[in-house]
């Protein structure tokens, strides 16, 4: 529907049902009062760098995320999790595990010096710029915000689970308490207040770093220039904005 017609219908509807003060209030909401004065969406574009070579699999990010965002601890759901890869030389498939998403760290499972290559890979929502999940949402309850975070509108989500199916990375789940979809929102409540995400804050090695791609002073630009960067499942052209350094070809 063209925006003119929309506006007309909206206005007509308002005149029909609303008294003047209420209409004035809504006017204010619609014209962007939602934006906090200190934070300008247009000046930011968020993403993340994950440096695989630095991840020690301590699980701090997983725990911090659950604490910060009230992610259910008991059922098996994660906004971020860590995988352990174990790739024997010449093996076609890697052995992967993620006990409890890495929540309690990774008890040693492989013998040291078994000749295989082994490493940790933190995963989270890739905040795709062409996200397959927001594309399929039937009602607009999940969307890419102007500053580059993929967000969920919990008060509008139907719980149809189509977006969960559409995410190639397994980053979405249905929160059993609200029966709506949940996923990493890049700690939107933190990054819009000038803080970094809970996972980055508690990462001891700097394996994860929040980046603002629109900020010319952000060290991300040097990092992206100086390293060979990869995103997950590039063949799906999701426009993922979580950039991995040192990502092995076996990582799915």
């Amino acid at each position: 529907m063209s925006s003119d017609r929309r506006d007309f219908v909206l206005t007509a509807g308002k005149l029909l049902v609303l008294t003047a003060p209420a209409a004035a209030y809504l006017e204010a909401v619609e014209t962007g009062k939602a934006e906090e004065p200190a934070y300008k969406m247009a000046e930011h574009y968020w993403g993340m760098i994950v440096d695989v070579d630095k991840c020690i699999g301590c699980g701090n990010c997983v725990r911090a995320c659950k604490t910060e965002n009230d992610v259910p601890v008991e059922p098996y759901f994660f906004r971020t999790w860590v995988e352990r890869y174990h790739v024997a030389e010449g093996a076609e498939h890697p052995d992967v595990d993620s006990p409890d998403g890495g929540y309690s760290g990774f008890p040693e499972k492989y013998a040291a010096g078994d000749g295989a290559k082994s490493f940790f890979v933190p995963k989270l929502c890739n905040q795709c710029a062409h996200s397959p999940c927001t594309q399929v949402c039937p009602v607009g309850a999940t969307f890419e915000s102007p500053d580059g975070a993929v967000l969920v509108d919990k008060s509008y989500c139907l719980g149809c689970r189509y977006c969960v199916q559409a995410c190639p990375y397994g980053c979405r789940f249905i929160d059993p308490r609200t029966k709506t979809v949940d996923k990493c929102n890049l700690c939107y409540h933190r990054i819009t207040k000038g803080l970094t995400t809970a996972c980055c804050e508690s990462c001891p090695t700097g394996a994860r770093q929040l980046v603002d791609l629109k900020d010319p002073k952000d060290p991300v630009h040097d990092f992206l220039r100086d390293h060979k960067i990869q995103v997950l499942k590039p063949q799906l052209a999701t426009g993922a904005k979580v950039y991995y350094n040192g990502l092995d070809g076996s990582v799915r």
Partner: peptide, 20 residues
């Protein structure tokens, strides 16, 4: 206002108080 979603959802995502 910004796209096919409720503009208020942006604010909803921001209201949470940080724990860290």
């Amino acid at each position: 206002v910004y796209g096919h979603y409720r503009a208020g959802a942006l604010a909803d995502n921001r209201v949470r108080a940080p724990r860290f």
